[in-house]
Simulated assay, not measured.
Amino acid sequence: MTIPSPPSPVRLPPLFLIVVAQLFGTSLWFSANSAGDDLMRTWALQPADIGRLTNAVQLGFILGTLGFSLSGLADRFAASRIFAVCAVLGAGANAGFALLAQGLADGLAWRFAVGLSLAGVYPLGMKLVVSWVPQQAGAALAWLVGMLTLGTALPHGVRMLDAGWGWQATILVSSVLALLAAVMIFALGDGPHLARRPGAPRLRLGEGLYAMREPRFRASALGYFGHQWELYAFWTLVPLLVVAARGTEAGSPSGPAFAVIGIGALGCVLGGWLSRRIGSARVAALALATSALCCAVYPLATGWPPLLLAALMLVWGASVVADSPHFSALSARACPPESVGSALAFQNAIGFAITMGSIELTTRLWPLIGDRVAWVLLPGPVLGLIALAPLWRRGAAREN
């Protein structure tokens, strides 16, 4: 009598595992911002100090991605292993902020460590996507960045559901999710499509920098830099914009902030779907133009009915990030497979350095000019649209 073999375990699609892990891992990014109102009361902070906490994450991320890019480490070791190790380290640093920080100085150090760890989560997540489904890079990266966006909003959603456990519990939820992300990606491993080719040149120090010599990569990267001037400053300002629009008596801004930031995930997914029809370059251009229009209109809309103003904020939240995955897809296609990790890490490093300037400037200007800071963000998408013109004008778009 033949004993039937046990059924093989059901394996989830790699793209599904990667995007869920990205959602969990990147919830570390804005975990402190979800507790911004509590931190301002407890530590006697100003809005500019919340911007400094955000910038500490950005600075850590920048230095981490530069390290990965210039050393070539992002392409020397398995992306899944780097992701898992960095997600564990980020979870620990995030928990340190929640449990050990006693004030702004301590908090800045812990948030810097979180950013340093995220350098091995976000860019390496993009490389993992390309290694598993290169033929669907634009649409697949749209899901990935959509999960980053939802991960950014997630702490606000957790805070909205707060059961009276305090702001520390909200932040610790992100640490638990990051640990789950590490386990998922470690078990998945790398895909087969970015293995080094036989006879490929050795990786050089500064590998990511060499990608800028390729005109297509340069156009995509410059467009991305303009996009970054707007994106993270907008996400940092959302709670302040919500409070200004609703008034301090309307309660916690966590719910509306979650909606405005989180809807960016839907924008990414819709952009990924649209890219199959018109291509990544044109989707990125459309998103840049829409968010630029929102920047220009928002300071003029303060007298609008609340529902109309909310609709404008939701359109802004959806469009401000919808272009991001397409810059990554365009850049990944413009450089050799064996240097994709280094090139994307370099692009991320410069882009996030730009975010530090816009976050610092807008949070400092907020007490002086209020929602007119939107006009400070406007040059980013406008210049990004101009830089990307060589790609979208030629219709260099049907990559998927």
Results as ranks from 00 to 15, higher is better:
6 P>T: 00
7 P>F: 11
14 P>T: 15
14 P>H: 03
18 I>N: 08
19 V>D: 01
21 A>T: 03
22 Q>F: 11
22 Q>G: 12
22 Q>N: 13
29 W>A: 07
31 S>M: 11
32 A>V: 10
32 A>R: 00
34 S>K: 09
34 S>I: 13
38 D>C: 14
51 G>C: 00
62 I>N: 01
67 G>R: 08
67 G>M: 06
70 L>M: 12
71 S>E: 00
76 R>K: 12
79 A>R: 02
80 S>P: 00
82 I>F: 06
89 L>M: 05
90 G>L: 02
90 G>W: 09
91 A>Q: 04
92 G>W: 04
100 L>S: 10
102 Q>V: 14
102 Q>W: 07
108 L>Q: 08
109 A>H: 15
111 R>S: 06
114 V>W: 04
114 V>P: 05
119 A>E: 02
126 M>P: 08
128 L>R: 02
133 V>I: 14
133 V>T: 15
133 V>G: 09
144 L>M: 08
148 L>T: 00
163 A>H: 15
168 Q>H: 11
169 A>H: 13
170 T>A: 07
170 T>G: 12
172 L>D: 01
172 L>W: 04
174 S>C: 14
174 S>L: 04
174 S>E: 09
177 L>R: 02
190 D>C: 09
192 P>L: 11
206 G>K: 00
219 A>N: 08
221 A>T: 01
223 G>T: 12
226 G>E: 00
229 W>M: 03
233 A>F: 00
233 A>Q: 07
234 F>H: 05
236 T>Q: 13
241 L>D: 04
245 A>E: 08
252 S>L: 05
254 S>V: 03
258 F>A: 11
259 A>N: 13
261 I>M: 01
261 I>F: 09
263 I>G: 08
263 I>C: 13
265 A>T: 14
266 L>M: 02
274 L>P: 03
275 S>D: 11
288 L>P: 05
289 A>N: 02
291 S>Y: 00
292 A>Y: 01
301 A>N: 05
305 P>E: 04
306 P>V: 10
307 L>H: 15
310 A>L: 13
311 A>W: 13
317 G>F: 05
321 V>T: 13
321 V>K: 14
325 P>E: 03
329 A>V: 03
331 S>A: 15
336 P>G: 02
338 E>M: 15
340 V>D: 03
341 G>Y: 10
342 S>T: 02
346 F>A: 13
348 N>W: 06
351 G>I: 10
354 I>N: 08
357 G>V: 07
358 S>G: 10
358 S>L: 07
362 T>V: 07
366 W>Q: 06
374 A>R: 08
375 W>F: 01
378 L>R: 14
385 L>W: 01
386 I>C: 11
387 A>L: 06
388 L>T: 11
390 P>Q: 09
396 A>C: 15
399 E>W: 09
399 E>S: 15
